[in-house]
Amino acid sequence: MAVSSEIARLLEHPAIWRGTSVARTEVLSSGFAALDERLPGGGWPRSGLIEILTPRFGVGELTLFLPLLGALTSAPTARSAVWVAPPLEPFAPALAAHGVALERILVVRVPDALRSGALWAFEQSLTSGACDFVMAWAKGPRAKEIRRLQLAAEQGRALGVLFRPLQAARESSHALLRMAIEPSAFGVRVNLLKSKGGVRGTVELDLTAGGS
């Protein structure tokens, strides 16, 4: 589709979503070919909010993002990769062995007493422009807050991943992508609940081939 260069530049603004063609949004490969096929544009969006819903902690949801984390942090123009309120300690040797550049990692711990501190830190990180990738484990943000986070991510050109319990699938969400993750025999089963322009449904991913 031929457009004048000015309009083309205008259309590149992240706040503008073009209904039919999603090829224009920059995507990042997930590292799993089977998943890339199903994601709109063929990979994770460069900026925006992704919701990952899991029945419990540790089913493989972090391993799913390892290739992306490795690629983003090792790039020469890498910005920070932030972990907001992770439930346990990210284990540096394992991350390093999977190719993550640790100098780009920031861990943010939120004192329990601070109400909605995690969401605040998440939003700050997304909007700052200093981050490529922000992951957060936050209890039940409401739909309005999710919308704000989505906008913050676009504004700061960051990819935000919000890990939530599976029950949240019932709620509606303004996130760009929503996926439910379950463990499977050799890895995870990914169920794409919402994906603008992408294919919904499940795909099985083999996680064993990756790390070791």
Partner: peptide
């Protein structure tokens, strides 16, 4: 807002 020790990197 969160305290000095609340933000760190890893090695």
């Amino acid at each position: 807002r969160l305290g000095h020790e609340a933000v760190y990197s890893l090695q």
